[in-house]
């Protein structure tokens, strides 16, 4: 159990690293959000579950934090992507199609 927990922690740390790298390397804000959100969400799941498995007293609270992150993190990045689109930040030149044109008219 403890070994599995420590393995999960190291695995999650690797995805935290990838999230930071994705934030740095991707060309525009939408792709950055894609890389950042996905990698850090799985990283958090893995690290927090690992901590819960190493010390079983922490497990219930760790599960609450996991549920909380699973609910809020995608919503936060979605709100941010929508805000930057409505503000008029241009996507990268590689972008082929845009069916969202103009956003929602207020």
């Amino acid at each position: 159990m403890i070994t599995v927990g420590y393995f999960l922690i190291a695995f999650g740390a690797f995805f935290y690293f990838l999230g930071g790298l994705g934030i740095l390397r991707m060309p525009d804000v939408y792709n950055r959000l894609q890389a950042g959100t996905k990698a850090t969400t799985l990283g958090s799941f893995s690290v927090i579950l690992g901590v819960g498995l190493v010390n079983l007293d922490y497990l219930p609270k760790a599960l609450v934090i996991i549920a909380f992150i699973a609910l809020t993190n995608p919503v936060g990045s979605s709100v941010l992507a929508r805000a930057s689109y409505l503000k008029g930040i241009k996507p990268t030149d590689k972008t082929k199609v845009d069916e969202y044109k103009g956003g929602d008219e207020k």
């Binding site: 990838l18 991707m26 996507p91 082929k96 845009d98």
Partner: peptide, 16 residues
Amino acid sequence: VAFRVLSPSLPINPGF
């Protein structure tokens, strides 16, 4: 995501 971030040429083709 890991594959896309780590490969040197950034294979993306984004769109809405």
